[in-house]
Amino acid sequence: IRKQWHEDITQDLRNHLVHKLVQAIFPTPDPAALKDRRMENLVAYARKVEGDMYESANNRAEYYHLLAEKIYKIQKELEEKRRT
């Protein structure tokens, strides 16, 4: 379902936000690492998460909020795993 606010969101912005999700899960300073085949699954997962939020959000603010919440949860989980 195409929503009115979707018209304001460019593909570049969506790609940028997918990249932010990927960085939250696997922070790497090396952009070449993103071309690694093992990263493809991670990028696919991040695209799916972003797509789900894009579809479920009712406006741009909610879209950003859902993504920020997801990134926060991912970082929290990773922190907890590092501690144990």
Rank of each mutant, 00 (worst) to 15 (best):
A32L: 12
G51Q: 15
A68Q: 14
F26H: 15
A44M: 07
T84Q: 10
D30A: 12
E62A: 02
I1E: 12
E62Y: 03
D52M: 15
A68E: 15
M39V: 07
E55I: 07
A61S: 09
L67E: 00
D36G: 12
D12H: 02
G51D: 10
H19E: 13
E40F: 04
L66T: 03
K48N: 08
I1D: 06
E62L: 02
Y63K: 02
V49K: 02
Y72M: 12
P31W: 08
Y63E: 02
E55T: 04
Y54P: 00
E55C: 06
N59P: 00
N15H: 11
D12I: 04
K35V: 12
T84H: 15
H16R: 14
M39Q: 07
G51R: 13
T84D: 14
N58G: 06
V18K: 00
L42T: 10
W5H: 09
P27Y: 05
H16G: 12
D30S: 12
P31N: 14
D12P: 01
H65E: 14
K35F: 08
E7N: 09
A32F: 05
K81N: 10
R60N: 02
E77D: 12
Y45E: 07
H6I: 11
E80T: 13
V43L: 12
E80V: 09
E69H: 15
T28E: 10
Q75G: 10
R14E: 03
D36H: 09
K35M: 09
L34R: 11
F26K: 15
Y45L: 06
K73Y: 07
N59R: 01
Q4E: 15
H19L: 08
I1R: 05
P31T: 09
D8A: 06
L66Y: 01
L21M: 09
H16L: 10
Y54W: 07
A46F: 02
R14G: 04
N58E: 12
L13N: 08
V18L: 03
N59A: 03
W5R: 05
G51W: 04
L42K: 03
D12A: 08
H16F: 10
A32N: 14
I25S: 10
A44Q: 10
P29K: 14
K76T: 12
K48P: 01
D12Y: 04
L42V: 15
L17H: 15
R37D: 09
R83E: 11
H19W: 11
E7G: 09
K76M: 11
R38K: 12
D8S: 07
V49F: 04
A46P: 06
E80C: 06
K76G: 08
E62I: 03
P27T: 07
T28L: 09
H16T: 10
K48C: 01
E77H: 07
Y63P: 01
A61R: 11
Y72V: 14
I1P: 14
M39T: 07
N15K: 03
A44Y: 00
H19I: 04
A61I: 06
R37G: 15
E80K: 01
R2K: 13
A24L: 03
Y72W: 09
K35C: 09
K76Q: 11
I9N: 01
K73M: 09
H65Y: 06
L67Q: 04
N15C: 01
A44H: 07
R60C: 04
G51Y: 08
